[in-house]
Amino acid sequence: MSADDLASHHFTVHHDREIDGQVRTDVEHIRDATLATHPGAVGLFLVGGFGRGEGGVVQRDGRWRPANDYDFELITRGPVDHGALRDLGVRLARECGVPMVHIEHSLAWKQRLRGPTEYTVDLRLGSLALHDPHDMRTRLWRCQAPRIPLTDAMQTLFTRTAALLWCFESPRDWRRAGMPARFDLAIQVSKALLAIEDARLIRVRRYHPLYAKRLQRFLTLGAGESLVSAMRWATEFKLRPDATSIPEDLEGLWFRARDWLLAEAFQHAGAMTGRRVESWRDFGQATRWRSLRGRDRWRLLRSRAVWERHRELALVNMLALAALQRDGSSDPKLSASARRICEDLGEAAGPGWNGLRLALLRLFERLW
């Protein structure tokens, strides 16, 4: 199979000819530019929401554009220049007038070795093949009830801690923010909520690549009414950002999402290790590579240094998030712990909670 039928693919849940046509123009341009610079590619896939037919779009400058970004997966037989690939994504985003174009890369020989992971499930069941002459998706792990490693979900929770830091300066600054800032904040809050959903579904082995299916399954897990309501909004906002209202008390939702995300990370760490995780010390110990069990531990054997770096970054992010109070002040003990780890990692934090936040974002850019 060379490629899926791009002409008949619906990129969003709207199934609107105008929206599909404008997104298709972007996708074809990105496909052609990527393959032109990587002529030996053995696979190029549109992944993420648009690959699944669940992309979110909004009107900008009289045109339908992604609310967030486009995501692609490039597969080659040999290594590529990742710096050049990032630069290509930046250039293509500018040419298409979209916030970002992410082009991730993987090697063809690794496809059969990945096993059942969130990556393989999403690529096999939730992607659009733009160039696939060797039918690379058949090389991915087949499984009816995917046993996605718990560490996959923890990595997603890790990244969402940085997303919550990125979008929020302080309650005082937030109250003066205009509509563009509200929309950006809503995107990051919805992503944090959906990461919680993913983690819970992966723990009970009921993950599905489609957001609508995930929500249906999440509703059977007995979550509290407030979290269920927030998850319904997050799913609807992800699928239809152009038609979904942003909560009036978005600041309050940020704090609730923060609390739910931190609690979920503690619970997930306990599930990974079989230990009770009730304190920051417990969390730090439980998420160390040597504390992981069975398949979760051995699949990270070669990349344990990367895992440890991500774990430490997530821990300091979580401490900073937990420190922020609704009145704009910060818990001195948690802030001091976060600053100490931040300095140990080579990044001095400026004054106040926002100074700490900015230092952590610099750390994330440098070390993640």
Rank of each mutant, 00 (worst) to 15 (best):
H82E: 09
G97I: 00
C96W: 01
D87F: 02
V90N: 10
A108D: 15
R124K: 15
R112N: 06
I103Q: 03
V121G: 10
V101A: 07
G83N: 06
G89C: 04
L107W: 07
S106M: 12
H82V: 00
A84H: 04
G126P: 09
G126V: 02
L125Y: 12
R94W: 02
I103C: 02
E104T: 11
W109L: 11
E104M: 10
T117R: 12
L92K: 04
K110C: 10
G89E: 07
K110R: 15
G97E: 06
H105F: 05
E104W: 04
V98Y: 01
K110V: 08
E104A: 14
E104S: 14
V90Y: 05
D87Q: 14
A84C: 04
A84T: 03
W109P: 08
H102M: 10
R112L: 03
L123S: 10
S127Q: 08
H102E: 15
L123W: 08
I103T: 06
H105M: 03
L130P: 10
C96Y: 00
E118Y: 11
R112Y: 00
V98N: 08
R91T: 13
D87K: 08
L85P: 08
L123P: 10
M100A: 12
R94Q: 14
R112K: 12
A108E: 15
D132Q: 07
Y119W: 15
H131S: 12
A108Y: 06
R86A: 11
S127Y: 01
D132P: 08
E95M: 03
V90I: 15
L125D: 14
R124D: 12
D87M: 08
Y119C: 06
W109Q: 13
C96M: 10
A129D: 07
L85F: 02
H102G: 12
R94Y: 02
E95V: 00
L113N: 10
D122M: 11
L92G: 09
L85D: 08
L92T: 05
E104K: 12
Q111C: 05
M100K: 14
L113V: 02
E104L: 09
R124T: 06
G89P: 06
L107N: 09
H105W: 15
L128E: 11
E95T: 02
H131V: 05
W109F: 13
L92I: 02
W109H: 14
V101Q: 07
P133R: 05
C96R: 13
G89Y: 00
V121R: 10
G115F: 00
T120P: 07
V90A: 15
H131T: 08
G97P: 06
H105S: 04
L125M: 11
L88D: 07
E95L: 02
D87Y: 04
H105A: 03
C96N: 11
Y119L: 07
R114F: 01
L123F: 04
